[in-house]
């Protein structure tokens, strides 16, 4: 029994990013992603990820490795790692959240969404537009109408910073 678990732990997977870089990881690390888990269950050991770029994939593999070794004693260490992990630019966060969503890693998804929410909280609509790269397609009249309809939400001072 012990030997089977050992061989199981050593099973390896290859992940291929959208920019054609390949990464070898342990199966036990990879299966925290539901998408990878399903493929592994179907017998795949080579996993192409056409929606995940190398830059995001490196960070996500780091995250998976860290969280695969979660024990009671390294709780604080993981918390620090997570805090550091999300301490990045908005563009990086969006790329990571998009990858985490594609890979179905729910704990990472929730952490990233909470981080994005915490950081756009209290920001002005103008600042949020810039952060999300949104082009406003309302006419000024339409925009004024929406602001008036939800007037309470637009009262007060908002944060104009983009970080």
């Amino acid at each position: 029994m012990a030997s089977t678990t050992e061989t199981k732990q050593k099973k390896m997977l290859i992940l291929k990013s959208a920019d054609n870089d390949e990464f070898e990881i342990e199966e036990s690390v990879g299966v925290q992603s539901e998408t990878i888990k399903n493929l592994v269950e179907d017998g795949f050991t080579f996993v192409p990820l056409p929606n995940v770029y190398t830059k995001a994939l490196i960070k996500i593999i780091d995250y998976l490795k860290k969280h695969a070794n979660k024990t009671d004693s390294n709780d604080e260490e993981i918390k620090t790692f997570d805090k550091d992990f999300v301490n990045t630019t908005f563009d990086d966060l969006f790329e990571l959240v998009s990858a985490a969503n594609y890979l179905h890693i729910s704990c990472l998804m929730n952490m990233l969404c909470q981080t994005i929410a915490d950081r756009i909280k209290d920001k002005s609509p103008e600042a949020v537009r810039k952060i999300f790269h949104i082009n406003c397609d309302y006419t000024p009249e339409e925009e004024a109408k929406i602001r008036k309809a939800n007037a309470q939400a637009f009262e007060g001072q908002f944060d104009e910073s983009l970080d």
Partner: peptide, 11 residues
């Protein structure tokens, strides 16, 4: 309130 404010971002 922050969620409601996103209604003004775009259509």
């Amino acid at each position: 309130q922050d969620a409601v404010r996103t209604s003004v971002l775009s259509r």
